[in-house]
């Protein structure tokens, strides 16, 4: 059975890498200059976070970060399906960012108390940066979620569409009992509960309605290597230059 630390790190790192790549696709296309900069900055942050986490995997005996990031195929990725979906329109990307980063901030706050000290150190660094992501998401969800009918309709549609995938952020793997028992992480159920409270609080300040999550079946599979048709093309594009000459020194 896979080392529980590696199992957790792959999930964390792959989420960061793939959403970082998706965020970068807004570069030059943002609806206003500030949002172009914001999504590009968050992309840069997420790639930095992925590098820190792949470096921990490397310390545990896995391949170099670049090799791990650029040479695997979709079936070897452990990201949730939420992060691999195309950027869609701005409402979709904003809602995905809101749902994802609320979970990430809580996740890394909890990880600061991890028994696996190298990960706790990385978490202490990342949580400060993630605060800005959540601040950014909350600002726009509150602002647009209380503005015109068109904005509210678009955001509500984005929420309905992304929520099943967001619930799969908390998909468990076989390593879950060991991760909790060894004090590496509080576990996905505890995280999901806190996340629901936090996103509900922000959404209640808007005209948006959170669908009843008990009636939704989460879009799971990502943590076990089952992905949408969108991941492989993303990986092909992301690794295109690297694969031309994997030994090149950039």
């Amino acid at each position: 059975m896979i080392d529980p630390k590696k199992d957790l790190l792959y999930r964390l790192a792959d989420d960061q890498l793939i959403l970082g790549h998706r965020n970068s696709e807004w570069n030059g296309l943002g609806p206003i200059l500030e949002e172009d900069i914001a999504f590009s900055s968050m992309a840069q942050d997420k790639l930095g976070h992925a590098l820190q986490l792949y470096s921990l995997l490397h310390e545990l005996g896995e391949a170099e970060p670049d090799t791990v990031a650029f040479t695997r195929n979709a079936g070897q990725f452990h990201c949730c399906q939420l992060v691999e979906l195309p950027i869609g329109d701005y409402a979709f990307s904003l809602m995905r960012h809101f749902l994802f980063d609320h979970a990430e901030l809580l996740r890394f706050e909890a990880l600061t108390a991890s028994s696996y000290e190298p990960l706790a150190q990385v978490a202490r660094k990342l949580k400060g940066e993630l605060k800005y992501h959540v601040l950014h998401a909350n600002t726009w969800i509150r602002q647009l979620g209380t503005s015109t009918d068109e904005a509210i309709e678009k955001l509500q549609a984005a929420l309905d569409l992304t929520l099943p995938y967001a619930l799969a952020l908390f998909e468990k793997t076989e390593a879950e009992p060991a991760i909790i028992a060894e004090g590496i992480f509080i576990g996905e159920d505890a995280l999901r509960q806190q996340w629901l409270e936090n996103i509900s609080r922000v959404l209640s300040q808007t005209a948006l309605e959170l669908p009843d999550v008990t009636t939704i079946s989460p879009g799971e599979g990502g943590r076990h290597g089952v992905h949408t048709e969108f991941l492989q093309p993303l990986l092909d594009e992301m690794a295109e230059v690297f694969r031309l000459d994997p030994t090149a020194d950039w």
């Binding site: 500030e34 900069i37 590009s40 900055s41 840069q44 930095g48 800005y132």
Partner: peptide, 13 residues
């Protein structure tokens, strides 16, 4: 605060 993201990661607008 206009935006928590500026020209570099360490700057806000």
């Amino acid at each position: 605060l206009r935006s928590p993201f500026g020209p570099t990661l360490c700057r806000a607008l």
